[in-house]
Amino acid sequence: MALKKPSVPFSGTAEQEAQLRQVIAELKDEPGSLMPIMQKAQDIYGYLPIEVQTIIAEETDTPLERIYGIATFYAQFALEPKGKYQISVCLGTACYVKGAAQILEKIENDLGIKSGQCTSDGKFSIDACRCIGACGLAPVMMINDEVYGRLTPDDIPGILAKYE
């Protein structure tokens, strides 16, 4: 068994931790407050690595496994940080039939990470998303707010190079 650790080392600051502890202190006595605490923690850190979940576990006197179970059940929680450039590849129906899977595979191969992960330099993260409403341009992807359409795998290196 291998501990699931993100490719990017944890770099939480003392300010973030103080903020998290304050949020927990405010909420922990309310029934059903674990989810809101986890949501706020994700707002503070951008994701919920083991270091953050351990603080929540110890401050709320909750087993870490219960928090991890929730974090991995709901799609809203991320265990990996987001990169400076967030790549979202649309796997909606139209994009999919136009070869989006090959686009995603090409990006994964070029960056050496899988969908849901972040490169170790913190630059790029990849996510698969559902329809972004640009089916006419299928297959499409977004990098932060920039939309790229009618993609072929050969376009990918050039696009990624713009962000190097």
């Binding site: 699931k4 083991i50 979940q53 087993p63 928090i67 991995t72």
Partner: peptide, 18 residues
């Protein structure tokens, strides 16, 4: 506990540690 969801659900420990 139960980690992940749907078909990926498995019983294990936090962060898949042993």
């Amino acid at each position: 506990g139960a980690n992940n969801r749907g078909f990926d659900t498995c019983i294990g420990s936090p962060f898949e540690m042993g």
